[in-house]
Design a binder for these strands. Structure first.
Lengths: 351, 351
DNA sequence: CGATGCATAGAATGCGCTTACTATCAGAGA
DNA sequence: TCTCTGATAGTAAGCGCATTCTATGCATCG
């Protein structure tokens, strides 16, 4: 403990026998400084263990070099992978990453946007599906405008736009397309009666997946049977309970399209306990392709979302990063990443 | 987009017809302001969409209300759970959480400590085992002192102290004790030849687990056979490859103590492919109790670490939070959380 | 040899806020 | 009526840095 309180730029300047302006210039390297002077300053910095004050720096005009990300839960792989992409890309651009979790609370989410705004984050990335709620959407829109007004950007990652007149940027994945593809896969394998299981009906994610599912049914000329749609939650418990209930009700079906892999895990467990073999008796597919899909036995056929890439894109778009070959293009304000099905062992033709 | 650039406190003051000091007082509520004035100020804030500038605030003396956490990888459940604890506890104390990942790089880790120092985080939490390396430890120690000098705290979470003279705080888990307990459990089940598998030998985590393992062997009077110790990496691949090699070598053993659950997952997979039934022929145990332990079949007997609680403790200790019943105690600078074995289905007596 | 231009360095201002310190005004007590 | 006190509100001084404007020294050139 050599210092009592941390050295300032003025201390460094005094020690090096120069002005604080010169110290600033040495640190930022944006102004010519003679080699001799530079060396004296650098030595003084080392001797005093000087650490710049990011706040003073941010206040004096330079950007804070920070991006914020708001997710539901750090432990959920869906969010964790996106967060990883954000963190890595932010680091790549010399930014620090502030991660906040909402635990699914709207108020918390709004409060966190404000907090990140106060921190003057270069971009605020809001991740995950949104519930349809007029007043909530208006609240988010208001904050998007405020952020925009102070030179920052709200990036919506994996949720729909708030409207043309709201200044946000968007990174989406082809949610509907993935659902279409995997439903079509089930149909071409011979399935006719497919249960759709899980997902809150008013969550944008569910809405899109259900839309893709229905489009595939329509495309293949299959009827739309309301008795096969069982929206609900997105956790394992729901999958487990509901599949057992459907079995008990003797519902007629040969495949289950789960709203995500977590629900699929519950379904597989329920099926296992009921002695129903997968995929021989019932085929199961999920969505997201998080690690559990590969842990399940049989391994789960599902829809892959390039989650980490979405996180990276969100940062690039939020920071106005121009990729090499885009030197003439205008600022990119939206991106859609593709989804694709990954075939494993949880689907077989029905008997 | 009503505003061009964001309103400042002075703008709010002008609009409300008061001084900026009064606005500050209304916002902070730390000084009497008449109801009428307060209301005018609040209205002005709302009308202008005023958002405080956290940097100006931090610069002017108030704390930045931020904690930093440095982990290896956001997607790894071991770190994710700790990070969740940190995030939640930080939020509970009105702090924002900055999460940084090192990808296992020492230089990156050191750079991140500096970055968080620049941000004037109230506390910097360094998570995960450390490699034994003199010069690296010295580098960390230097930063610990610098942090301390500017009123912040470096909290070591799940790694050993840097020495009495280095101003850090520590949150540990009973690593050695957990390893002792689970080895003892294997022994009381009748196992005599137990393989220890995985974990870099110079990682503090491995060292402690191995120490507990050896103590249990000694305690039960079993010989210490070097041929049974196979340290290495902490990933699935290593577990898979090495167990197959041991099988091919016809090594004599009846149980495997994996350095963590991920290695155990690889081991189980290797055993499955080799047609060796678990636990009938070989028993397997892991360490950490991350979600995969419950996904494996059979479910994995392992050592539970209260990861989220560790994260919470780290924040409390770093922030000098005094718990209710500790009103007379000095500042807490260290904590050890307990570990316990959780018995599932991957262990049986040897034949 | 004096004027001109370039390379460096310093002085000074302000970013937006918190917080001593100071000022004002009412009502209370003398 | 006058002073004293308490409750509010204002003034102003930084916090540590980036940056604009100025100043200095020196080589170059006519």
């Amino acid at each position: 403990m050599t210092e009592q309180s941390l050295a300032t730029m003025a201390d460094v300047a005094a020690r090096a026998g120069v002005s604080s302006a010169t110290v600033s210039r040495v640190i930022n390297g944006n102004y010519p400084v003679s080699a001799a002077t530079r060396q004296r300053v650098e030595q003084a910095i080392a001797e005093l263990g000087y650490v710049a004050n990011a706040h003073a720096r941010a206040l004096a005009g330079a950007t804070n070099r920070t991006v914020g990300i708001i997710i539901n839960d750090l432990v959920d792989p869906f969010y964790a992978y996106i967060a990883r992409g954000v963190e890595r890309e932010a680091t790549r651009h010399g930014r620090l990453c502030m991660v906040c979790c909402t635990q699914g609370s709207h108020e918390q989410e709004l409060a966190l946007i404000d907090l990140l705004h106060e921190q003057r984050a270069d971009a605020v990335i809001l991740v995950g599906g949104a519930y349809e709620d007029r007043s909530y959407a208006a609240q988010v829109a208001r904050r998007a405008r405020a952020l925009h007004a102070s030179g920052s950007t709200l990036v919506l990652c994996g949720r729909p736009s708030l409207g043309e007149d709201v200044p946000t940027r968007i990174v989406e994945y082809d949610n509907e397309g993935g659902a279409f593809a995997i439903t079509d896969y089930l149909i071409t394998q011979g399935h006719r009666r497919i249960v759709f299981l899980g997902g809150p009906p008013n969550l944008s994610t569910t809405v899109a997946r259900l839309a893709g599912h229905r489009r595939a049914l329509r495309f293949r000329g299959l009827p739309h049977d309301k008795g096969l749609i069982h929206t609900g939650q997105l956790n394992r418990r729901f999958g487990y309970d509901r599949i057992r209930a459907l079995l008990a009700d003797k519902l007629d079906f040969t495949a289950v399209f789960c709203a995500n892999d977590t629900v699929a895990a519950g379904v597989m467990q329920g099926l296992e306990l009921a002695g129903v073999p997968v995929p021989e008796a019932i085929s199961v597919v999920g969505y997201d392709d998080v690690p559990i899909a590969q842990e399940l036995r049989p391994q789960l056929t599902t829809v892959r979302i390039p989650l980490e890439e979405m996180g990276r894109q969100a940062v690039r778009i939020g920071l106005d990063v121009v990729e090499d070959d885009a030197y003439l293009s205008p600022v990119q304000t939206a991106a859609v990443v593709g989804t694709n099905i990954v075939v494993r062992s949880s689907v077989a033709p029905p008997k």
